[in-house]
Computed example of a mutant assay.
Amino acid sequence: MTTLGLFNLMGLHDRNTSPMSVLRTTVDMVAMAEDFGFDIAWFAEHHFTNHSICPSALMMISHCAARTSRVRLGTAVLALPFHNPIRLVQEAAFADLLASGRLVLGLGAGYQPYEFDRFDIEESTKIDRMMEIWDILEQGLTKGYVAYEGRHYRIPPTELSMRPFGLSMPDLYVASRRPEVIARCARGGHTPFMSFGHRGLAPAVAAKEKLLTMWADGGGERSAMPLAIQRFIYVTEERDDALHAARCVRDFARAWVTLHERNLEKEGPFVRLMPLNDEPPLDDFLESAVIGPPEYCVEKLREELSALRPSHLCCLMGPAGIGRSETLASLERFGFEVVPHLSEWLSLGQSDDLAA
């Protein structure tokens, strides 16, 4: 069965958008997702641009821990090279304490050169740094202390007061397509996390096949590989509303490509978005995402879940540019009119209030 997640990027669309409104909408979405039985609410981490106002997923987890009771709360992802590892392991342990054991960790190495430059981190070292910080997190969160000697990090024996000995590691989801990272996932039974992107189902199937090959090369059984996929979903009956959502998906794709460049063109924190070199027409973005009436979204998701058979479906439902009321209305339609028709695929933790 497939568990269900809500991805919160917390993008700032323009200067007329209030960061407070982004925060309020995110918190309301998380509360609504819990009522609908979502398993995990994910929070992004990005820096220095309007792509996301959230520089710390763990801060959002701590904030939402007090406003929820059942839904698990995850980092999607911790860009590990940007963190001091001994501080990070303490903050992760404390966030798990605040969330009463509901913490889920998504790990990554980062991909934006602009961020690496400003953190004064050599981008070529990011995988090595990621692996070492991963070691430190595992040690601290499972043993309650850290003692580490690596190439990039050296930590003398240090006890963690907020993490008693014997507690297990939170579930790990890892965003990477590097063979050494996927091999480590295979050894530990951790979940590879991939974005569906904007190219449609066939490229996603091909991307999964590459992950399966790396998983098997790392010693894992192909049939046993878990997989988390991220999907753009927007539920609406209105054609104009659907086209606007498709434009927001297109802006997301343009931002993702642009943010891979070292020399960003910006106005303050706002990244200047340019058309993709091979940009398809808007209708292609509409077709490749899950955008439309509830019955259409149900059939499209059934097709994709059947083809990809993920262990986790992560839904990006509020990309920048879609208003607060529209975002919440789409999530409500998804919960009431789409999710119940996917019961053969989805494993939901229904809240007591909804079940009643």
Score class of each variant (00 low, 15 high):
residue 2 T to V: 11
residue 2 T to E: 08
residue 4 L to C: 11
residue 6 L to Y: 05
residue 6 L to A: 11
residue 7 F to D: 00
residue 10 M to W: 06
residue 15 R to H: 12
residue 20 M to E: 14
residue 21 S to K: 13
residue 23 L to D: 00
residue 28 D to Q: 14
residue 29 M to A: 15
residue 30 V to L: 02
residue 31 A to S: 13
residue 35 D to M: 05
residue 36 F to K: 03
residue 38 F to A: 05
residue 42 W to D: 10
residue 45 E to R: 10
residue 46 H to D: 13
residue 49 T to F: 06
residue 50 N to T: 04
residue 50 N to A: 10
residue 56 S to Q: 06
residue 57 A to K: 06
residue 58 L to S: 05
residue 65 A to I: 02
residue 69 S to G: 15
residue 69 S to C: 03
residue 74 G to E: 11
residue 80 L to M: 10
residue 84 N to Q: 11
residue 91 E to I: 00
residue 94 F to Y: 14
residue 98 L to A: 10
residue 100 S to D: 15
residue 103 L to W: 08
residue 104 V to M: 06
residue 104 V to Y: 08
residue 106 G to V: 03
residue 106 G to W: 10
residue 107 L to H: 07
residue 110 G to Y: 04
residue 111 Y to C: 00
residue 113 P to E: 08
residue 114 Y to D: 02
residue 114 Y to A: 03
residue 114 Y to F: 12
residue 118 R to V: 08
residue 130 M to P: 14
residue 132 E to G: 09
residue 132 E to Q: 09
residue 133 I to N: 13
residue 133 I to S: 12
residue 134 W to G: 03
residue 135 D to Y: 04
residue 136 I to V: 06
residue 138 E to L: 10
residue 143 K to L: 11
residue 147 A to K: 15
residue 147 A to N: 15
residue 155 I to M: 06
residue 156 P to E: 14
residue 156 P to N: 11
residue 158 T to E: 06
residue 158 T to I: 12
residue 158 T to F: 13
residue 162 M to H: 08
residue 162 M to Q: 13
residue 173 Y to N: 00
residue 174 V to P: 02
residue 175 A to M: 02
residue 178 R to Y: 10
residue 179 P to L: 07
residue 181 V to L: 01
residue 191 T to A: 10
residue 198 H to A: 08
residue 200 G to V: 01
residue 206 A to M: 09
residue 206 A to H: 12
residue 208 K to D: 12
residue 210 K to H: 13
residue 211 L to S: 09
residue 216 A to F: 04
residue 220 G to M: 04
residue 221 E to L: 12
residue 221 E to A: 15
residue 225 M to S: 07
residue 226 P to R: 02
residue 227 L to Q: 01
residue 228 A to T: 09
residue 231 R to W: 13
residue 232 F to E: 11
residue 233 I to W: 05
residue 236 T to R: 03
residue 238 E to V: 01
residue 243 L to F: 14
residue 243 L to E: 14
residue 245 A to P: 01
residue 246 A to W: 02
residue 247 R to T: 13
residue 248 C to W: 03
residue 248 C to R: 02
residue 249 V to N: 02
residue 252 F to Q: 00
residue 252 F to C: 00
residue 255 A to Q: 06
residue 259 L to P: 03
residue 262 R to V: 04
residue 263 N to G: 05
residue 264 L to T: 06
residue 266 K to N: 05
residue 266 K to C: 12
residue 268 G to A: 12
residue 278 D to G: 06
residue 278 D to C: 00
residue 279 E to G: 03
residue 282 L to N: 02
residue 283 D to W: 00
residue 285 F to S: 03
residue 288 S to F: 07
residue 296 Y to G: 01
residue 296 Y to A: 10
residue 298 V to Q: 06
residue 301 L to C: 11
residue 302 R to Y: 09
residue 303 E to D: 14
residue 304 E to H: 03
residue 304 E to S: 07
residue 306 S to Q: 14
residue 307 A to N: 09
residue 308 L to G: 14
residue 311 S to Q: 11
residue 313 L to Q: 07
residue 315 C to F: 04
residue 319 P to R: 07
residue 322 I to R: 04
residue 328 L to Y: 08
residue 331 L to W: 08
residue 333 R to N: 08
residue 333 R to P: 02
residue 338 V to S: 05
residue 340 P to K: 12
residue 340 P to D: 09
residue 342 L to H: 03
residue 343 S to E: 14
residue 345 W to A: 10
residue 353 D to I: 15
residue 354 L to F: 15
residue 356 A to L: 14
